[in-house]
Design a protein around this nucleic acid. Structure first.
Lengths: 258, 258
DNA sequence: AGATATTTGTTCGTATGTATT
DNA sequence: TAATACATACGAACAAATATC
């Protein structure tokens, strides 16, 4: 009686704006539109789909939220196909793991496989500019932090170093997945708590790993780079999982609902 | 001259609905809302954000497009927080690689690392029901195809087998990434052409691999499973890349624009 | 079974802002 | 500077869906 509230309709028939979004995507595929190309004017879309201005706008808004469309005002303005940028893609992806946060070990299981391979492919491929960029990131934590704020920034900068490496990877799938895993880590609520804990040794050991890594990358020694990164990942995982366990015993359970 | 002090508005100041979407997400985080929980009514949101109904609805529409919100009409209805399902997440992610299609080799570089590990973790963990599901998938291509349609279906079923394995993986991050790579392959335009080509040996060899794989999984022999999957991946990559090269020479360039 | 209240869904018309020409 | 073409936002009204009495 009190529990038949379950929606009987498995597929709540897609709303109109959602359907129009789909049709617009089809349009892009069929006409082979490329980033920068213009979509029909809003008025034309209204006519074509026999929908009101607001409905069309809602459909366009959804595509904008997905990063597939950008709009400009003024004459010659309109809605334009756009390549989704990586940040947007990661943000959307992050939503999926929002309500089912993975374990630290789950993430590191992948990082241990992928990041060593990533740096191996990078060996001997980096330009002077790339090295400068990496060094600039490292410099943010080549010294002891002066206060808690700087400490936290250093922890994030450490992840940034990995992010730059991922960005430089010519295999964009590999680079993207690595970046995604780092992003996942960044946003994991348990990690936010872990990152708040001071940890001097970790900074120093991380710094050491990365200096060594840059050195062998410069030499073009892929195998050495692979090994350094793997060891680094193992050390990081061990530390993070220890923190995870510790936090788990500290707060037996924190629920935001009474 | 060409470098005026004003940063040329890198970010075309986010539109209002987009900002409201962000704020709604923050609301979900702050209040610790879970899937199934209700958002404020549209009227309340209009008051709270001092925005018109259309604007609020556009913001909600964006969240719906991201699979984060579902809505129901009627009394007791409203907009509800929802967990993004995997399919939706993959679809959104696929948009990112839509305009920068990776090479076959890029994808297989990851599959060769991840899928062997995936089946290794599955060894000895599968239930009778799991095996039945996997066997049912295999059965779709345990015989020679009668016609082109069945041939194509068999090629997709082969990917489905891998998808089921990914789904069964307790490490959801690993499972998701593997599923994503398969999805990427499915949607790659070059793959669609490759899959159209008849290839009797590939079906047979794939079938053989998978029967053997199920056998060692049943024995709980993770190492054997890892090796079988790795060999399978290498063989598949070799075949796909050969096709890729062949197609590249066939059509020097096909552009959809005159 | 039917009327009604509640809440989202769709549309129209209009006013405003902004960039190009 | 002014005109123009376009997106952006608002408000009011009406339609559809659905739970409750």
């Amino acid at each position: 009686m009190n529990d038949p509230t379950v929606p009987p309709a498995k597929t709540p028939p897609a709303r109109r704006p959602a359907r129009i979004s789909e049709q617009l995507k089809d349009l892009i595929v069929e006409q082979g539109l490329q980033p920068g190309d213009r979509l029909p004017r809003e008025q034309e879309l209204m006519d074509q789909f026999k929908a009101s201005k607001n409905t069309v706008r809602e459909a366009l808004g959804a595509l904008q939220a997905q990063g597939l469309v950008r709009s400009r005002t003024g004459p010659g303005g309109g809605n334009f196909v756009s390549a989704q940028d990586e940040d947007r893609a990661m943000e959307l992806l992050g939503n999926y793991f929002f309500f089912q946060q993975p374990r630290i070990g789950d993430i590191y299981a992948l990082r241990k496989m992928l990041e060593p391979e990533l740096v191996a492919t990078l060996a001997g491929q980096l330009t002077e500019a790339d090295f400068q960029r990496l060094n600039a990131t490292i410099r943010l934590y080549d010294h002891k932090p002066q206060n808690k704020v700087e400490e936290y920034r250093q922890r994030l900068a450490e992840l940034d170093f990995h992010a730059v490496l991922a960005e430089l990877c010519p295999n964009r799938v590999l680079g993207f997945v690595c970046g995604f895993l780092q992003n996942l880590l960044r946003n994991l609520s348990i990690c936010k708590r872990i990152y708040d804990k001071p940890n001097p040794e970790l900074r120093e050991s991380g710094f050491h790993y990365q200096v060594k890594l840059l050195s062998v990358l410069n030499d073009g020694d892929g195998e050495a780079a692979r090994k350094i990164m793997f060891d680094h990942m193992c050390a990081a995982q061990e530390y993070m999982e220890a923190c995870e366990a510790e936090l788990a015993t500290d707060f037996l359970r924190i629920s935001s609902r009474g």
